[in-house]
Design a binder for these strands. Sequence first.
DNA 1: CCAGAGATATGCT
DNA 2: GCATATCTCTGGC
Length: 206
Amino acid sequence: MQMKPPETPEAATLSREFFTRETIEVARDLLGQILVRRWPDGRQVRAMIVETEAYLGTDDPACHTFEGRRSLRNESMYKLGGTSYVYFIYGMHHCFNVVTRHELDPEAVLIRAACPWPSTPSGRTWNGPAKLCGHLEIDRRLDGVDLTEKEGPLSIEAGPIKPSEGELDFGPRVGVAYAGDAAFWPLRFWLKAFAPQLPHLKLRSS
DNA sequence: CCAGAGATATGCT
DNA sequence: GCATATCTCTGGC
């Protein structure tokens, strides 16, 4: 069975209110939504988000803003929910995050994997945050853009499934204990129940 | 299948 | 100097 994109002529771009909620809720609800990449020449590529990870701000030791760290790199995390945060890592790769909550409340959701949309039998899963950015040509030039802008270079539209309708199961949380102490790791969510309809969906373990 | 190297930005000690 | 929200390639068992 092949899923179709929303029937509505204009798919709804997710609202500001969607992104300013609790980060863990945004991370969960981003599953199944459609990431849209637009180029100046009019080309568009869409992908369904299937794996997310929440980074919980100044108290989260894994978060770039842990204990209030703020620099040129992570400045976008201090902006309003619905802003993009793109960083360059390992001298090689880019990773794309959706900023959540409000100004000066620096939390975000890392987009770890997505499937080309509409789904095709030969489609692939862009699994891994850097691979996703590679395929969608996301780099630092797209850092700080407004994801709620309808015709912007990056935006997020409502997908065909709604978590509130109970159609989704969420993957178990991978607990990682740091050596010695009770530091915690951000929560990660996978899109699982929808997988049968995305035959090429492949999620990484751990 | 698994471990290690290498690509080298960024921020912290 | 060192660790890291990564990925690909290589060589060993």
